[in-house]
Design a protein around this nucleic acid. Structure first.
Lengths: 132, 132
DNA sequence: CGGTCCGGTATCTTTTTGGTGACTATGGCA
DNA sequence: TGCCATAGTCACCAAAAAGATACCGGACCG
């Protein structure tokens, strides 16, 4: 009771609750990290973002950045030069997701702590309070 | 700079940043809604959760609930009856993700507003302020 | 005897997501 | 002349996630 679960639409997206909407925009394997980097670094060019995220393939980075752009959270600026130069930055809307990302990050740390306590509680009798 | 991007482990999970960890626990298509329902309803039995989420298949609900249980955010209690009765509720750790989910939800509403403004700005000249 | 209820499994198919390698354009440089 | 750098694209493949469907157990009810 309380929460209805009706299907809603917003642009090209379909969702049941706002949480789902949010995750469609900033969720997935790479988007949070990309936004985190842009929130941290201000304006970065493609290769800078790429370097800051080892393991991401060029295809995925391009794809995710384009989606973020399409969703209005990232600004893409092409400088018609050779070799090409493309700058990425957060839009105002994009900046507004930073607190959300921080909220996710804080809980991640909390979970990490919790999981480590579980481990040591179950087995380790040495290595007491060492949070290395 | 600032943020390193080293691979970390936590139990069975592999991640680069805490945001990713969090999303591995509470992300995905169904988990946020499930937790939202449990946060709202307190203790619910399987069929109650299912009814509150149209469109979820039994398989997905079982699967997601089990993962949430394995990750320590949901408590599962089996009553050995016939027909079977299984109750689900949030653990303390689980309750601690509610603010995160609310944060996601709030931003979703914000995005919704923004997207609607985009639409009306671009086209609609009739149907002015009608938010039906 | 047959059906209903509840909370599942098991199996298969479809969809989504991620990943690789090859290819491109163009100015500058040796 | 030929190669480098940058930021892509495209075709293709593999893996993971999600979905559809069928089946199960066992008390109880008629």
């Amino acid at each position: 009771m309380g929460v209805t679960c009706t299907l809603k639409h917003c642009g090209n997206k379909t969702y049941y609750c706002n949480v789902e909407l949010t995750l469609q925009v900033i969720g997935g394997k790479w988007k949070p990290i990309i936004m985190y980097r842009l929130g941290d670094g201000g304006t970065l060019r493609f290769s800078e973002v790429k370097r800051s995220i080892p393991n991401i393939s060029q295809k995925m980075l391009t794809q995710q950045l384009r989606e973020l752009e399409a969703d209005g959270v990232v600004h893409r600026e092409v400088h018609p030069q050779v070799p090409p130069r493309v700058d990425y930055s957060l839009t105002e809307l994009g900046k507004s997701v930073m607190p959300v990302i921080e909220s996710l990050s804080r809980w991640g740390r909390r979970y990490e702590d919790w999981a480590n306590r579980q481990d040591s509680g179950h087995e380790a009798r040495g290595a007491a309070s060492a949070v290395l």
